[in-house]
Design a protein around this nucleic acid. Structure first.
Lengths: 136, 136
DNA sequence: TTCATCTGTAATGTTATTTATTACAGTACA
DNA sequence: TGTACTGTAATAAATAACATTACAGATGAA
């Protein structure tokens, strides 16, 4: 995964949950995370695609959760953010002339999928509401 | 984690297991993975520190597993390679003036530790021998 | 109806991380 | 004593992550 994106998404979602009585702007959110507002908008663009956040444009616009925090599993967040296998390499092209090189990617993929399933299962046990409950 | 390192270590260890009747040189290993031999030596330097591989210098030198493949858990490999939290961000310094920013890292750390424990538990269920058995 | 304030997104620049390469000292065997 | 390795440092190149600038489009309010 793009390292950092899960943390950023969790931060965004936590803010939206805890301050759910108002729409938050990308600038306010960015101020809490301490990153650029454009990054927040990009990240939220992704969270919107996955049905976790909704937005309103124009003046008085901003962001809010698309559904109650107790209906958002942390595994949903992971899935939304995920791009590449958790343990997998980015650029590798092992030698196909070698018995191991030829098959390793296939077998590693299987392993990574299983490992990721275990992770998802774990993350699926708590919700955003459970998480943001810790802030008080 | 340094993405790619787990894959590389698994590749190295699989080769060492399947060709355990001889010492393998960094060049042979690098040829199978299709990376630079120096990277192999560096990665093995780390695996040695964790007691998974042993080496012999000089002419006729090379590498071998430090113990039987059935005694090497995949979680051992992960632990050897691991540098930073699985899901964690690299550079983030949230705003301490914000209720969320102030505490988020602490709570994310807890979450990441739990998630990683689940992963380790899963990886601890199979050994290098189980993995390399798949190549034939 | 026009200005102010926001989202959405593209394009580009900067910085950090990862991987590759070069170089060479040290070891061990023949 | 030469050859073929490991071990490791130093540096360069490639890639990925993040920041910034810019601006079109939406929406509400003066």
């Amino acid at each position: 995964m793009n390292n950092g994106r899960f943390s950023i998404s969790m931060h965004i979602l936590t803010l939206l949950d805890l301050l759910s009585d108002e729409l938050l702007t990308s600038e306010v959110i960015a101020g809490s995370i301490n990153i650029n507002p454009v990054l927040v908008r990009k990240e939220i663009s992704n969270l919107k695609k996955h049905g976790l956040v909704e937005s309103k444009e124009g003046k008085t616009g901003g962001y809010a959760l698309a559904k109650p925090a107790r209906q958002i599993l942390l595994s949903d967040v992971y899935t939304a953010v995920r791009q590449v296998p958790l343990l997998g390499s980015t650029r590798n092209s092992p030698n196909p002339a070698c018995v191991v090189g030829k098959q390793i990617n296939k077998h590693l993929d299987t392993l990574y999928t299983e490992a990721e399933d275990a992770l998802l299962k774990k993350l699926g046990k708590s919700t955003l509401a459970d998480f943001s409950k810790k802030f008080s």
